[in-house]
Design a protein around this nucleic acid. Structure first.
Lengths: 223, 223
DNA sequence: AGATGTGAAAGTTTTCACAGCC
DNA sequence: GGCTGTGAAAACTTTCACATCT
């Protein structure tokens, strides 16, 4: 049993994407602090490291519970547990990755995924020339084995790293195979049933925001 | 007084990151519409394609000008010109890419960049084994040539696709070489002078938001 | 004393609703 | 009639400021 850290998780109404993104970022800072063997941190210090205000930090946490101790701040380890549990990275997630191109390979070796318990169970590609190649211990599989693999490893998340024209078809097959969430790197708007959670990552949107700032010479209000 | 059917661009106070992101997305939809040879679109149709409301669409445009015609909607071509000009993708941008790994290669061949006039002038890597290799017509260069290349091609944007531990050093060299904006794919918080525009793309933050949704069974308010 | 947690205030963004033009 | 552009209202987010706890 534990019971040391004060924070039992509670409330959870109307959480916004922005709050969750900040929690992810706080978590990264906490990983660094743990490395530096810092045991305790105040909302003010955490805010400064991230570039926000202490009130924002405390408000973000307060949607989920009371994780700190008045007069003392937050224990780094306890706060990581609490945020990890909110984000759902306190367990291991099995993924399937579709698309064995360069982007797929970059994701396969992306350290952040490993650190946070996202585990790629299998890689698929529709190109027969790629099928059978090895990435470390993984062998690239044909799409025909997708459904069986999803079932076998109880995969809940599919990652799409294919060109835009095949994105929708891949998403359909993932959903058919039973995944509940999709992380989509293909620059295409996917249409899937409402029960499927979809997150899109578009590698060029941040570039356009940069060209906006450079051509107009103006900063943007934060994201 | 009379008007400005193809809308001259005006206002520009307190534009938020969110507005610019939506403009990028509208632009993509307009590219599709152009392909489909649709000449005109209403705020309502555009909103439906994107998944927002017509009021949001009109409000987004109204920060910059009057691009439509009452009773008729927006001409696709004209709207693309206006949004393109706002985003600064109505001109060609020269980039340097640092990091010739799989992510770098994925970015090099990413079609969206080419379509939107982002042109990779040169690729650099600090690993001597990679220097000299060819990617299409590009030859991977050593870091020692960075400053000269930035000057020669009048490069204003640097793209960082290296592991986190070298991210800060690469950013420093880019700034020293004279770039004004950085698109950073390394999961590290960069410290650079205020005049340098920085945009971070973290490939795993969207994954964490997905694991939040899956583990809690709840959608998030949009981003 | 020191720092959290949180209502209330301030600020920002989105939605409403309609005047104005096609 | 159709649809934009925009003030005003509603909803949401961030900041303030202080009671509360260690």
């Amino acid at each position: 049993m534990r019971g040391e850290s004060s924070g039992n998780i509670r409330k959870r109404e109307g959480i916004s994407e922005a709050t969750i993104r900040r929690l992810s970022n706080y978590y990264r800072i906490l990983e660094d602090l743990e490395q530096e063997e810092v045991a305790t941190i105040s909302s003010e210090e955490l805010a400064q490291r991230y570039g926000t205000t202490s009130a924002q930090v405390r408000k973000d946490f307060s949607s989920f519970g009371s994780f700190g101790r008045r007069g003392l701040g937050y224990r780094v380890a306890g706060l990581m547990e609490n945020i990890g549990s909110i984000l759902g990275i306190d367990r291991s997630w099995q993924l399937v990755l579709v698309g064995a191109g360069h982007l797929g390979h970059a994701l396969y070796q992306y350290e952040e995924f490993h650190k946070q318990n996202f585990h790629i169970a299998a890689v698929f590609d529709s190109n027969n020339k790629k099928v059978g190649r090895k990435w470390g211990e993984l062998t690239i599989k044909p799409m025909s084995e997708l459904a069986a693999t999803v079932e076998k490893f109880q995969v809940r998340i599919g990652v799409i790293a294919v060109p835009p024209k095949s994105g929708q078809a891949v998403a359909d097959r993932l959903v058919e195979a039973g995944v509940e969430g999709i992380l989509n790197f293909a620059p295409v708007k996917l249409k899937e049933p409402d029960r499927v959670f979809i997150r899109n990552v578009n590698l060029s949107i941040a570039m356009e925001s940069l060209s906006y700032s450079l051509s107009k010479g103006r900063k943007l209000k934060p994201f």
